[in-house]
Design a protein around this nucleic acid. Structure first.
Length: 488
RNA sequence: GGCCCCAUCGUCUAGUGGUUAGGACAGCGGGUUUUCAAUCCGUGAACCGGGGUUCGACUCCCCGUGGGGCUGCCA
């Protein structure tokens, strides 16, 4: 199966766009087919330079790499495949030929109406509570006259002529059969006066020529579907299969917007989300496997994904679950992947850790408790820098640590460390000794370990006291306890 | 206004005529005889409304209601 993703270079890649791309990519991979990337830049005014690269970079980050079409080769835009070019502005003549074919066949006509006339026409229609549709003012202009005026450089567009006939029905892979009455369909502009095609013409021509089997796109295209079906009929082509995915929504159920959310993939990359987590989250927004499995790798998604399990209703983009998935995926990283993930943050905030040969021993301690890379330097800092230990944190009623018994508790902890022989310096032995010592002093284990942990890390939460002690070593640990005992 | 789409816990969802309506996230409670945003266990929480069809509807049909999309020489 050949599928495609066809973004417009008008801005950053939207998370909804990434979801659509993901679905299309999964289907292509599942069927061992091809996933194409086409750039729809037929609106010159809205195209923004640089956005093609940024869209491509985001897809590459997500590991959704096109097999054909527009790709990134060493950071540069490239095109590959037998159906190119894959950038619509480079296919202008092709669309013009097809549009003129339609004109010759009587499926299209030239329209010379000015923007002003169209505007006042629509206004009048709205006042009469009619739906704004082109009134076919120009349909009766004789062909010769239309061609003469065109030759005289009078601006005009080509409109498709919606023929009378039975309602148009079409099967959608997600929604089932859709039905549209012809009189509700507007004579859509196919070719603009600047010679560029509109989306409708370009979509039909390209997806046919590029041999796309399945058009997966957002629900916002549903109402123009009958126009596309008609165009395929005009050309005598078989339409592809269609699947319209629902929109992503804000908390108030309106269309996901910049004002209420981070919507660009770049923002999620910048926040430190792992591609596995974002993709997993996006896959689950509108699709479910039918099992209780929640964590899916890209490979598992390829095997499990299918359109008949895609939800019709729009889904609220609520990132709480995304954060949970992020934590899950951080925990699943291999040691070297985890290091690569947090490395930029370490470089920036704790560079001394990078020259530490024992860093690999410390990383497992924090991998299981952080969610984002940016938490890593702080979680590692006390291994390299003497922490600031506050009395407020050392004292903990719940643990049975009070202002009064604190010095004694730390004293006992110190002697435990002091009395532990180097050959017994293991996590198991140390913990056992603490346990025995607590018992003999009629203390709870927590009364010993809480102040110890805080004295060593200065933090409300961190890896366990014994684990940290192991890494810091006897000497440093004792030194830190001493300075905690005599603050200031 | 017209056309089209949609509707199960707060959120993401399972469910395809008979279920104690299941799971996950979040919430809450507890365990982890040491903290935590980690981990484990437990817990509360939903079929938009009204008519049909049927022995029986969350499931099928109709009508409302609510939400969304489109209604551009934007995509």
């Amino acid at each position: 199966m050949r599928t495609r993703f066809a973004p417009s270079p008008t801005g950053l890649l939207h998370v909804g766009g990434l979801r659509t791309a993901l679905y299309a990519w999964l289907l292509a991979k599942k069927s061992k087919g091809q996933f194409l990337l086409r750039i729809e830049d037929t609106d010159q005014e809205r195209s923004i330079p640089g956005t093609i690269e940024s869209i491509l970079r985001c897809l590459q980050w997500a590991d959704i790499v096109p097999d054909e079409g527009v790709t990134l080769e060493r950071g540069m835009i490239a095109q590959k495949g037998p159906h190119g070019p894959y950038i619509q502005s480079e296919r202008k003549e092709l669309y013009q030929e097809h549009a003129h074919h339609l004109l010759a066949q009587g499926h299209a006509y030239r329209c010379f109406c000015s923007k002003e006339r169209l505007e006042s026409m629509r206004k009048a229609q709205e006042e009469r509570h009619q739906s704004p549709m082109y009134d076919r003012h120009c349909i009766a202009i004789p062909k010769e006259e239309a061609e003469r005026r065109t030759k005289d450089n009078e601006p005009n567009v080509l409109r498709m002529k919606i023929p009378d006939g039975p309602a148009i029905t079409m099967d959608d892979a997600i929604r089932g059969t859709l039905r549209f009455e012809r009189h509700t369909i507007d004579d859509q502009v196919l070719l603009k006066s600047d010679g560029f095609p509109t989306y409708h013409l370009a979509h039909v021509v390209d997806d046919h020529l590029m041999q796309i089997d399945l058009v997966l796109r957002g629900e916002e295209w549903l109402s123009s579907l009958p126009k596309h079906i008609l165009l395929f009929q005009f050309f005598g082509w078989t339409p592809p299969e269609y699947a319209h995915v629902s929109l992503l929504l804000n908390k108030d159920r309106t269309k996901l917007s910049k004002r209420q959310h981070a919507v660009s993939v770049e923002e999620y990359i910048a926040k430190g989300y792992l591609p596995q987590a974002l993709l997993n989250f996006l896959a689950l927004l509108g699709w479910s496997s039918g099992t209780t499995q929640e964590i899916f790798s890209l490979q598992e998604l390829i095997e499990e994904f299918s359109l008949d399990r895609v939800q019709k209703a729009g889904a609220i983009f609520d990132t709480e679950k995304l954060d949970w998935l992020q934590g899950q995926w951080v925990r699943k990283l291999a040691p070297e992947e985890f290091f690569a993930y947090i490395r930029p943050a370490i470089e920036q905030h704790l560079p001394e850790a990078l020259v530490d040969p024992n860093l690999p021993k410390k990383l497992p301690l924090i991998q299981e408790r952080i969610t984002f890379a940016h938490e890593a330097p702080d979680m590692l800092a006390y291994f390299y820098r003497v922490p600031t230990v506050t009395a407020e944190l050392l004292v903990n009623e719940k643990q049975g640590v009070t202002q009064e018994n604190l010095p004694q508790l730390l004293q006992i902890a110190t002697s435990v460390l002091q009395d532990t022989a180097p050959e017994s310096w293991t996590e198991e032995h140390l913990l056992k000794t603490f346990r025995d010592t607590a018992k003999s002093h009629s203390l709870k284990l927590g009364q010993l370990l809480w102040p110890l942990r805080v004295a060593l890390t200065g933090r409300a939460y961190s890896p366990g006291a014994v684990e940290v002690t192991m890494v810091l070593g006897k000497e440093t640990s004792i030194k830190r306890i001493c300075s905690a005992l005599s603050p200031g």
